[in-house]
Design a protein around this nucleic acid. Structure first.
Lengths: 128, 128
DNA sequence: CAGGATCCTTTAAGATACTG
DNA sequence: CAGTATCTTAAAGGATCCTG
C-alpha cells in the first residue's frame, strides 16, 4: 500500500531523490569540464557497474541534464555532455563531492567517537 | 560477492552516498535555522516515516553533523540541532533542495520530451 | 565500443506493534 | 513524546551473457 501522506510523492521530493544520488554526482562531476564516452566514464568513475552507469546516464539524459551524441564511427562512439540546465546544477552537486573528500577524516573521527560512546551504554550484562 | 574494484568501497564514496540522500537533505534543511524536536521534524518533513526519520537522524548524529539533546521533561523532549561541522555542509545540501524546487517544471518538461521521443523509436510492430 | 536483457542476491523501507 | 523491534514486501544493484 502507498502511504496516505500526499507529500510522499511530491514531485519536488522525487526530483531531489534523483539528483541527490552518489552516481549522478560523480558522473556529473566527471562531465563538468569535458564531454566523455561511456567506457571512459566507466573507468574514471571508480567502482560503478556498467548497469548503474547506463541507468544513471539514462536518467540524467531524461531529466535534461546531459546530452547523448552518437558518432557513426566504427565501432560506434557515444559522447555524453552537460546541458545548459545541467550547468545550473553541476557546481552544487560537485560541492557535495568535494565536501566529502575534504571532510572524510572529520566524519570518520565523529563515527569512532559515536561508536565508542555507544559501547559504554550498551547492554552491560557481564555475568548478569 | 563484493566487487573486486577497490574503489567500490572508497570511504569518500561511502560518505558521499550518505550525504547525497533525500531525507538527509530535507532534515538538514529543516534544522538549518532552528533546532527541532523529533515529531516536529516528522510533521515538517512531509512524507517521512518515523523509521526513516529515526534512521536518518541517527546517521547524521553519528557522522557529527547534528547533535541530539535530551531534556528530562515529562514526557521527555529531544532536540536536534546542527553542529559546527554540519554548518559547513548545510548550505550546499540546501542548494540541492532549492534547485529541485526551482527546476521541477523544466525537468518535467524534459522528461515528457524524452518519453515522447522514445515512443517514435519504440517497436513499431503494427500489423507486423 | 556501447549498451540491453536476464537472473539472482542484498538492501531499503513501509506497516505495525510495543516501551520508557 | 520519542523512539525500538519485527515482519514483509518492494526496489536496488551486481554478475553474466548477448548484440549491433
Amino acid at each position: 500500500m502507498k502511504s496516505d501522506h500526499p507529500e510522499a510523492d511530491c514531485p519536488m521530493i522525487v526530483l531531489l531523490d534523483r539528483i541527490a544520488d552518489k552516481w549522478a554526482v560523480l558522473v556529473m562531476a566527471m562531465l563538468r569540464h569535458d564531454a566523455m564516452r561511456f567506457n571512459e566514464l566507466r573507468r574514471c568513475v571508480g567502482g560503478i557497474s556498467q548497469k548503474m552507469l547506463a541507468q544513471t546516464l539514462r536518467g540524467l539524459e531524461r531529466d535534461g541534464l546531459v546530452t547523448r551524441t552518437v558518432f557513426a564511427t566504427s565501432p560506434v562512439t557515444v559522447e555524453y555532455a552537460i546541458t545548459t540546465l545541467g550547468m545550473t546544477l553541476v557546481s552544487t552537486m560537485d560541492e557535495l563531492r568535494i565536501w566529502s573528500e575534504k571532510n572524510i577524516n572529520a566524519v570518520s573521527a565523529a563515527r569512532r567517537r559515536f561508536d565508542a560512546a555507544r559501547q559504554n551504554i550498551a547492554p552491560v550484562r557481564m555475568r548478569g
